[in-house]
Design a protein around this nucleic acid. Structure first.
Lengths: 234, 234
DNA sequence: CAGAATCCCATTCGATACTG
DNA sequence: CAGTATCGAATGGGATTCTG
């Protein structure tokens, strides 16, 4: 294994461990199990509750989610917390180290986006969409919105985003006071607006609960600064 | 699934696929199986033969290696080639797209290196060691070696490396004509020299087939510019 | 709602042996 | 050397049920 032993488990010279001193192999042992990375992705923008994770990761079973959360907590990627805001609500939050896995997820996503095999029409979670903004932001395309803030409402999810220097910051947060607010029912609907670049009016009319409120020009400027990676693979 | 269907496989709504439009999920479907990323890592610095891969990935079975090579070839990450140098020798080579997976591996490795759980004393392959050089190179630490080249001899492996601008380039290649040549029996031995920073003489004496030949000061300068990430996790 | 406990099947992995 | 073939064992993980 590429992990120091956490407890006194039986010596397993073969078995599941790579036994490889390369850091990548150790990362695989911590994050390589099925569903681990999607869970981390869902937590990157803020703590989530068990049922929220289940809802945002269609296909995961309660059993596997429990196992992964416990495993990731044992290895120090996340921890169970009681949210200060509401009373007694428990949630899972990335540790600092877990948060630092973001570049791994970013590079995987950017790599996949460049492939013809990637199917953008599949359902995409609110978090996954929100994370594309910093991934695809290209500061050379302008969009210095003088501190203008964007509110993103995707189903029940609420994010705020703003451009600072060469990057976009995204967090979960209250959308009500932002300069421009965009609402849609799903990440895929947001994709149509931000990357397929449907005209605002047509886009808003194409769904039940879609809206663009506030300074639409700020939104235009941000969208213009996003660039989906070009397809480069066979 | 997050892959467009490659052929007419049975519709598998559940099963192994994430069904997630996020690029990361697609990457997991292509690269997430056990041994896939270690195989790609071993190919990053140049084509390798079947038996070489087996030797450099201790623990992989012929069956799994075959399966992975075929699978990765199907998805376009690598291809079987006949090496031009020797007659009729077949090997596996990354495609351009496969080569672009390097940032994924780099971020995973850098992330793991920062963890206390990472055990650097485990065996490390020659390729994995060679790949650490560009990962840990910090141009702000000097080491502009005026085009000086380094030959790395690790067991039967031969790499050349040189500093260009802010990065280190590493490739498989002939070591005989380089400015300074380092030879050792394993990646771990190299680790002791480059990162544990044993004094050259003591280091060379600590193993059977170790040597530093040529301009030792060039080697010193390079080593001084490498910085293993600091441990940052619990 | 948040998980623990069972059950059970499909897959996968690894070891060994075999072949062109 | 470059894989195939076969087989046993482990386990991953989906579905269901139960509990506090």
């Amino acid at each position: 294994m590429a992990l120091r032993k956490l407890s006194n488990e039986p010596e397993q010279v073969h078995g599941r461990w790579y036994g490889d001193g390369c850091g990548m192999a150790m990362a695989l042992e911590v994050l390589g199990e099925r569903w681990s990375l999607p869970i981390v992705r869902e937590l990157l923008l803020g703590p989530r509750r068990f049922s929220e994770l289940r809802a945002d990761l269609p296909g995961i079973s309660a059993r596997v989610l429990t196992e992964r959360l416990n495993g990731l907590a044992e290895t120090g990627l996340l921890q169970k917390v009681t949210l200060p805001s509401t009373v007694g609500v428990e949630a899972y939050e990335l540790t600092q180290w877990g948060q630092q896995a973001e570049p791994i997820i970013r590079e995987m996503a950017l790599w996949a986006m460049r492939s013809d095999l990637h199917d953008e029409t599949l359902p995409i979670s609110a978090s996954a969409f929100a994370l594309t903004l910093p991934m695809t932001f290209d500061p050379s395309r302008g969009a210095d919105s003088r501190g203008s803030t964007l509110g993103l409402e995707i189903g029940q999810h609420r994010f705020i985003a703003w451009v600072t220097g060469a990057t976009v910051i995204v967090r979960r947060g209250d959308t009500s006071t932002q300069d421009v607010i965009v609402r849609a029912e799903s990440g895929n609907a947001m994709f149509a607006l931000f990357y397929a670049r449907m005209p605002f009016v047509a886009w808003a009319a194409a769904g039940e609960d879609r809206a663009i409120m506030g300074k639409a020009e700020d939104l235009s400027r941000l969208i213009a600064a996003l660039s989906w990676p070009e397809k480069a693979a066979a």
